[in-house]
């Protein structure tokens, strides 16, 4: 398990464009929004979270488009399957590494943006936990979609993943809505965490079935 962690993070870290690229893309999207809409800073606050969720979604979409493709093309997946008879732990860890190297950095950056936009430190409690959890969910679901489309292009992967993300987006919207009205948001965060805990095991399991089928 620790070997896998080391190897997978080594592979991603050494490929700068695959992890730093998406983080920079996140920054670029966040910067470009205020440039494209003419908004008073008050109005920007209203749409800010919508921008934040969509940027993190797009970032994850871009960063995961070849999560399995490289390992598929160079034979790593096949090699690993022959050695270990199972892909489950490799996929579980791969997804975790992507969250560690991309999901967490964009959550931190997004939180900075939200604090600076609202001018209020308390938005940390809205932005940080929800981005941390939702990015992990996004990564899992995009990994699933991209495992299905694998070598058939990332557009197909995005097409079949996006509909699965709607409930998460709505949940995120609800969190902001409740926070704006001054309601409790911890129950919604817990709900999202619960969703994450369920899919965190099920999705790698489904992905390993799909990838095995690809390797046949």
């Amino acid at each position: 398990m620790t070997d896998l962690l080391k190897i997978e993070s080594f592979k991603l870290r050494k490929k700068l464009r695959a992890w730093l690229g998406p983080i920079l893309i996140f920054l670029l999207i966040m910067i470009s929004f205020p440039l494209t809409v003419e908004l008073a800073s008050d109005e920007l606050k209203n749409v800010f979270y919508s921008i934040l969720w969509l940027s993190s979604l797009l970032t994850v979409m871009v960063s995961l488009d070849s999560i399995f493709l490289e390992d598929f093309d160079d034979g790593t997946l096949e090699h690993y399957l022959i050695l270990n008879n199972s892909l489950f732990s490799m996929i579980l860890i791969k997804i975790f590494i992507y969250w560690l190297l991309i999901g967490i950095p964009i959550s931190i950056l997004g939180t900075f943006f939200s604090i600076s936009t609202s001018g209020d430190f308390s938005s940390f409690y809205i932005a940080f936990p929800s981005m941390l959890i939702s990015s992990y969910i996004f990564i899992n679901l995009f990994a699933l979609g991209n495992s299905l489309s694998l070598n058939k292009g990332s557009a197909l992967g995005a097409l079949i993943t996006m509909p699965l993300l709607f409930p998460v987006l709505i949940l995120l919207g609800k969190i902001v809505l409740n926070a704006n009205f001054g309601f409790e948001i911890s129950n919604l965060l817990l709900l999202m965490l619960g969703v994450l805990l369920i899919i965190i095991v099920i999705i790698p399991f489904i992905i390993s079935f799909v990838v095995k089928t690809h390797l046949e």
Binding site: K11, K14, E70, D73, D74, G75, T76, E78, H79, L81, I82, N85, K212, L215, E216
Partner: peptide, 29 residues
């Protein structure tokens, strides 16, 4: 190698056989 299953028939290895495989893909980054 057990990656693909045959449409018909079966294979049987002696238990716990270790295998190394090199195919068309080089497993190199």
């Amino acid at each position: 190698l057990g990656i693909t299953s045959p449409r018909k028939g079966h294979i049987k290895w002696v238990d716990n056989t270790n295998t190394v495989y090199l195919g068309h893909k080089n497993v190199l980054k």
